[in-house]
């Protein structure tokens, strides 16, 4: 998946600089709310997407370490096209992460096509594996800045 393609799945209105939820569930709801607010999904679809994502989370945490979580639905029945929502949480939330560390950056992926999930997760992990990039991402204070930062980061790393 090219940098342009992945950026198209992540709109500025789905970049949240200051999550306020205090639990994993509240944060996931907050991220889904942004999809409702932007019109990407209908309000009555939100509970279904929440259920899809929570079901996956109950199988095993998506808190993959280093303060990052990737809650997702690999084959969502709700979204017409694949959506990525990014949220920053200054205090950190308990995601039952594999390393036990609180989560500060959450990438929610609602994939319409399961084929799209793996390359998106890979491109997110490319940023996540770079401590400097991760710290820089967490310094972005507005939706537009987060969006711009991710687009630039994706276009500067990787072969395509």
């Amino acid at each position: 998946m090219s940098a342009t393609e992945i950026s198209q799945h992540c709109r500025a209105e789905h970049c949240l600089p200051a999550l306020t939820g205090e639990t994993k569930q509240e944060v996931i709801s907050e991220l889904i709310e942004s999809l409702v607010a932007s019109g990407a999904i209908d309000e009555e679809q939100a509970p279904e997407l929440f259920g899809e994502i929570l079901a996956r989370e109950e199988e095993a945490t998506t808190g993959i370490g280093k303060g990052i979580a990737m809650p997702h639905a690999r084959r969502s029945e709700v979204v017409g096209e694949t959506q990525i929502v990014v949220g920053l949480h200054a205090e950190g939330i308990d995601f039952e992460a594999t390393d036990g560390a609180p989560v500060h950056v959450v990438f929610l992926i609602a994939a319409a096509d399961p084929e799209e999930y793996l390359p998106i997760a890979a491109r997110i992990a490319q940023i996540a594996r770079d401590d400097v990039e991760m710290k820089a991402l967490q310094r972005q204070t507005t939706a537009k800045r987060i969006h711009k930062f991710l687009a630039e980061s994706w276009s500067s790393c990787g072969a395509s």
């Binding site: 993959i64 370490g65 280093k66 990052i68 594999t98 793996l118 390359p119 997760a121 890979a122 491109r123 997110i124 992990a125 490319q126 996540a128 594996r129």
Partner: peptide, 8 residues
């Protein structure tokens, strides 16, 4: 695990 996921 993050490096492994990044391989895609």
């Amino acid at each position: 695990s993050i490096e492994l996921i990044s391989l895609g």
